[in-house]
Nucleic acid binder design. Structure first.
Lengths: 206, 206
DNA sequence: TATTCTAGATCGAACGCTCATTCTATGTTA
DNA sequence: TAACATAGAATGAGCGTTCGATCTAGAATA
């Protein structure tokens, strides 16, 4: 029998911190060398602990990958939720979108996100996590866009809204690729053009 | 000294065929397991030859990766060139774009392209190849879009055209991500919406 | 309070395996 | 026979993972 309240919570937070420490190191290594290029030895060195110790917090390397993926997508989910929470006027959506664009154009972040998508294309475990998160985002965006369109007098089928969501998402996610293929692009100006394109998208015929 | 005309060309074509055989097998393995996840043993088995023999045609694994990247980008370059060669009317561009969209939405092709971009984010050798090809595409697209805009009476700065090219590219390349994250999307309908978005893009204010 | 006990945190060596690459031997062809 | 195509075993490095030993800090005992 043992339930020392204080020390239990201390242990828990210590464990959480350690886990986070590993995930932080892993994210850095994965960004630099990819999921399969990064070794446990590298991650453990970056995290400042022994290789063996990592296995006290994660079953195996794949579990680390899955945790990184889940963590990265969580930030996407919160962004989408905020977008939805903001009053549903067009201007708000478009203004918020600018932040999203800037976020996608960060090369370090883009590298990890692309690594995740590439891994999702071949790893079913990762694919499932990614697709569930994406489905949630699409649902949220569909509601937001649907309200904007209705307010503007359009009568769209749910399918039509879904297609617009895809175009919107494509516009965003393409930036991940753009910032790698053309790192010299003018982020601010391109963001402006993207905003205009989103604006036009919301006015597409039914 | 050796230049037996017939046999030389036979040898050359035989060697070329062998190289192509390796590249074909490598592309398949890379698509399924990624650049670092695919082994020479796997590639050699897929290509139907011994591991050692691969090193008669490529210096090392990285050379295979580079060749795959160059080959994949070449198809992009020819597509862009065709786009440019077609009479520069708007309708032609937009119609051709539909083919490009369909191409990007092929999941198998998308997986390899994403793998390449992810690798470019960390491998300088691959990054150079990718960025040179991208620069060429951008130049071509800028000329095409510039002509369309001028015909429509706009007076854009070269920079403005470049930003539009980025948005256009983003729209396309985002589809690579979309087809992985949401494999169930309605390809034909989304393609239509993309066409409308491109049409609107060409009408953005100066 | 001083001492012992104990369970978890942590380490780093070791394991078995697979990797990219090299080497040598054996066809094959002209 | 000379030159090249090909195979497949050998090599050494590095991988993910396991495991027993040590450390540490708080609980239990006296």
């Amino acid at each position: 029998m043992k339930l020392p309240d204080a020390s239990a919570s201390t242990d828990a937070s210590r464990a959480t911190a350690r886990r986070q420490q590993i995930l932080h190191a892993a994210a850095q290594c994965f960004r630099e060398h990819g999921f399969h290029g990064a070794s446990i030895a590298q991650i453990s060195k970056t995290a400042g602990m022994s290789p063996g110790h990592i296995y006290h917090y994660f079953d195996n390397k794949e579990a680390i990958i899955a945790a990184i993926v889940a963590q990265d997508l969580e930030s996407l989910l919160t962004l989408t939720a905020e977008l939805r929470a903001a009053c549903n006027v067009r201007a708000a959506l478009i203004e918020r979108a600018a932040e999203g664009v800037a976020d996608q154009l960060d090369p370090a972040g883009a590298a990890l996100k692309l690594e995740i998508v590439a891994e999702a294309a071949r790893n079913p475990r990762v694919a499932q996590i990614v697709r569930e998160a994406d489905a949630t985002c699409r649902r949220e965006l569909a509601i937001t866009i649907g309200e904007i369109r209705r307010a503007a007098g359009h009568q769209d089928t749910p399918a039509a809204i879904e297609h617009m969501v895809e175009v919107l998402a494509s516009l965003f996610e393409g930036l991940l690729v753009r910032t790698i293929r053309n790192p010299g692009l003018d982020r601010a100006r391109v963001a402006q053009r993207i905003q205009i394109a989103i604006d036009d998208l919301l006015d597409q015929p039914d």
